[in-house]
């Protein structure tokens, strides 16, 4: 594959590529913003609502500690969810697109 002769703008205009980009951006930036908001709210409430976090839920285990655990679980969830989403959708779409480009000649 000669790099210089590849018409990248043409690929960038390819509807399949655009669709892949759109879905990726929606997923990735969307979940990043949700995560960031959750994290910041968690910190702000920790600071301003000490009494809330001090509420004992089970025995002497308080809400504050349970939230810490919940956030670890949330991070695992994001890791697992993204991995499965990418395996199911974006990897396939990418492979499909690259296959298309090869078949049609990269400059077509």
């Amino acid at each position: 594959m000669e790099q210089n002769s590849t018409d990248w703008s043409k690929i960038a205009r390819n509807p399949k590529f655009k669709e892949l980009r759109r879905r990726k951006e929606k997923f990735l930036f969307g979940w990043w913003i949700i995560s960031a908001v959750i994290f910041v709210i968690f910190l702000v409430v920790a600071n301003l609502g000490r009494k809330v976090y001090g509420w004992c839920v089970i025995g002497d285990i308080n809400l504050g500690y349970l939230l810490v655990l919940a956030l670890f679980v949330y991070c695992w969830f994001i890791a697992g969810y993204y991995a499965s989403w990418a395996n199911r959708f974006s990897d396939k779409m990418t492979a499909d697109l690259v296959e298309d480009l090869k078949e049609g000649g990269i400059n077509k």
């Binding site: 930036f29 995560s35 994290f39 810490v68 956030l71 991070c75 994001i78 890791a79």
Partner: peptide, 15 residues
């Protein structure tokens, strides 16, 4: 600090 590190990896993963 523990939670923060986990969230740092969310940025690395997604972006």
């Amino acid at each position: 600090y523990c939670i923060g590190t986990s969230f740092a990896y969310v940025t690395l993963l997604l972006i």
